[in-house]
Amino acid sequence: MNHNAWLAALTGELRRHGVGPDLTGHVVAEAATHLTESGEHPLRVFGPPDAYARAVADSLGGPDRRPPHRRPGPVRLAAQGITKRYRGRTVLDRVDLTVRAGEIAAVVGANGSGKSTFLRICAGLVSPDAGTVRVHGALGYCPQDGGTAEFLDADEHFALVGGGRGLTRDTARRAGRAGAAALDWSPPAGTQARHLSGGTRQKLNLVLARLGEPEVLLLDEPYQGFDRGTYLDFWHEVWRWRDAGKAIVVVTHLLNQLDRVDLVLDLTTPRERAA
């Protein structure tokens, strides 16, 4: 690996580790200066790019999470009094959630606590027994699985979903490929969805939810099957969407992400919590 390749890899890894673009510029430039002056090999001086990026991110006390001045925008999603019963069991009991533009809400809870059901109600795919949902703007929804067509390749998916949003085939394809690139994926032309790995299919799923830039994004554990790098890319993208003023709801069971979001909706019932 020569200097430039190492520095390019470092840039990508810093981004993956949530280091902001300004600081990334400084860190990379400083490393470049050092390499020029010492004339030594980057792997010897700094080690592998991902390890060095992690050391830099750690020295910051974690990733650069939120921009300093953020005012929450107008309300984008307002769910009120959502109640749902399945076979006599109350799964959701008068649940409220309000998400504004530029906010990320995490929906957490034990298995079977109704996280996915709540999201499906917000998306209008399931009717609640009581309660209302108001959505300001368009809605993008990424299901936990499914949501893709076995016999279509990625570009055809982009054209199909983009067509609903009023995008032309070319626009949809460009937008889809840009979204895929942000997740470190370049979809091979002609490879049908049924031949993609689980993680890659989830990338497609996620990109499709984002097509046409909907104001509200509902993501149901979209990172299943992602490797660690893609997982970091995913959160990095979510923060970027938030900073672009989207309202995002993410179902997650990974509690270590909770400090990176603005709101947490815990669906674990008090009874379950006591048990």
């Binding site: 929804y141 499914g146 983009g162 097509l211």
Partner: peptide
């Protein structure tokens, strides 16, 4: 049958 999975998503994307 094959379209059942993707149709709700298409409906949400404006169809």
């Amino acid at each position: 049958s094959a379209a059942r999975g993707i149709e709700p998503r298409l409906r949400l994307s404006g169809y």
